[in-house]
Amino acid sequence: MHPAYSVIFFTVSSGAGLGLLAFMGLGPFTFGGETSDMIWAAFILGFAMAVGGLISSTFHLGHPERAWRAMTQWRSSWLSREGVIAVAALIVAAIFAALWLLLDLSSALLGIVTTILAMLTVWATGMIYAQIKAVDLWHRWLTPVCYLLFSLAGGITLFIFIHAVFTGKAGYELSSMAMVMLLVAWAVKMFWWMGADRAPTSTPESATGLGHLGKVRLLEKPHTGSNYLQREMGFQIARKHARKLRLIALVLGAVAPILLILLAIPAPLDVLWLGLAVISHLAGMLVERWLFFAEARHAVMNYY
């Protein structure tokens, strides 16, 4: 599948931003109470990444001016559900943040609802891909699970960085949580990759219905040039380098951030290490997301 940069940026940025907002929703139960510069910074970064990503997702639309219509078909469409839940999550999170930041009121109820809606948004993003039966690689329950875990891991990693910037230390418990989340998320992702080599659901034989006669292969394409289907579904560059790129994603997204967080726990340069951990994790996520599209094989390619 063609990896559209606006969608890659959207899923990585919104995923981490919503993860951070989901983490802030748990604030009233953990570090809640008085407002502080740290709380301000965490909310600003969370909203900026979540909203920035959502806006960039409209850049790949043919008609962004009609994007509001995408809120209407939540009964059947996961893309529509994602839009509806994202708006609900941002509105609830904004009320939650405003009460906390302006009135020193950290509402446990609004916090929980913020966390749930932020996570549901990310789940809906994963389901947009998981619902597509024509792409074997995506059509699995683990797909939205990966999206959810990456979002939480990214959110916590962002938070410990902000925590270090404002308090001067990463915090042992927060750092441990971040490392566990990173480990779990990438372990599930590796499990997801292991399923990538199963036999395809559809073959040129089933696509043409001629399998009972013998082996089927394309003799002539329908046209001499390329077409939309080939450009959109026929992206093949990644498969050649898939193994190397997976390793790069894993090192940038998991190994390096965990080592950097470990470095930050005792060291005085924790802000630097954690800043690098955030950058490395997000870079790893961009590679992972690019591969998510580029590696996926669409059933229509059985005709080409």
Partner: peptide
């Protein structure tokens, strides 16, 4: 007139029956 040109329907179709128009973006 209601199509936003997101392309998701073309992804969902296993047969490649849908094509986004390069000029009209629908």
């Amino acid at each position: 007139d209601h199509c936003i040109g997101c392309g998701l329907c073309a992804w969902a179709c296993p047969y490649g029956a849908r094509e986004m128009d390069a000029v009209e973006k629908v």
